[in-house]
Amino acid sequence: MASRNSLQTPECQTTYTRIGSCFAPRATPKSCNIARIAPILSRQVSGEEEENIKALLNKTWHVFGLSPLYNFERKSSAFQRYSKSLSSALEAESHKGCFVDNDVPGSVEIGGIRGLTVNIGDQNAVGIFVRGKNRKAEDAMVYTALFCCVNLQFCPIPKDLQASFKYFPIMLASGPVAIMNSINNWLESQFDCRVTKLKFSSNDLLWMASLWSAYTPVPKSRPLELVYAVPQECEGLSKITYRMAAADAKRLLDIVHPDDSDELTEEEVQAYFDALESHLCYMFHAKLGTMYLRTVGNSIAYVSTDGKIKLFSMDYVFNVLAHLTQLSVERFTGTSLQTLPFSQNE
């Protein structure tokens, strides 16, 4: 089997080692389950719940990590109170002139969203919807945010505090950055929490790409896409986009990963990327191992290092969300503090 060592001629090893991915401390556990996660009591997915899941698809979401929310209540009266408070906060901001030349927020609606949980311990999702005027002064939905908690394996809040804290590891938000910032500020002051952009390292992307390739490709599905950023000392070239047909990517994965196992191990992920990159090296002699992996995507989802995600597949929404939840919890509990998102290393 072609290993990375065979690709790197000795001359290159003195100058470069793989950046931020294979030799970096692990951010993800040694292996991951690739079995499909179905929604809770999957036979009873109601129409409304299906709509809620569908609303997640084909949109670009910014992923944020949330720390536990203090004194967050799940009552409709509380939701009404929050929406009033948030709309007045937004109005104050727009008086300050924060939303000039942009979408202007108007009414706010906060409420629970059903159908986005997979096990009993998961909190039901909560959504923030802001209607307002868009650039053409038409009435439109200008901002959406969802607090999710999908397949949470372990709750990091100590037992005695669990009554006063609610934990949603991830928040998906879509809308203009100005509104996003003011809502994040409001959340931080209202619930005494911290909202941070969930940035992914190259290593995280490596894992996601491999996990999602493992799901059998539908014929004619989107190709596996890897976007590599070329380091700055190589002037003139900024990125290399590498797309491989989904079926061919699966053929490569089948070699490194035996069919009967549901676990994908780190060695397999590494071998899979070695195989992908060595094919490009064979075609163009370029060593992708020396570059940064910026974006990965296939028919399940597109993810980039700056914490943006786009979901495509209804069937695997929960797998993706569960993976994000897991990453966010890891960041929150600090089990993987040593791996910073690589964009900060530049």
Partner: peptide
């Protein structure tokens, strides 16, 4: 089947 794109301000130089 693959598709490879090289992009940048001056690709040949790159």
């Amino acid at each position: 089947t693959c598709e490879v794109k090289f992009e940048g301000p001056s690709v040949i130089e790159g």
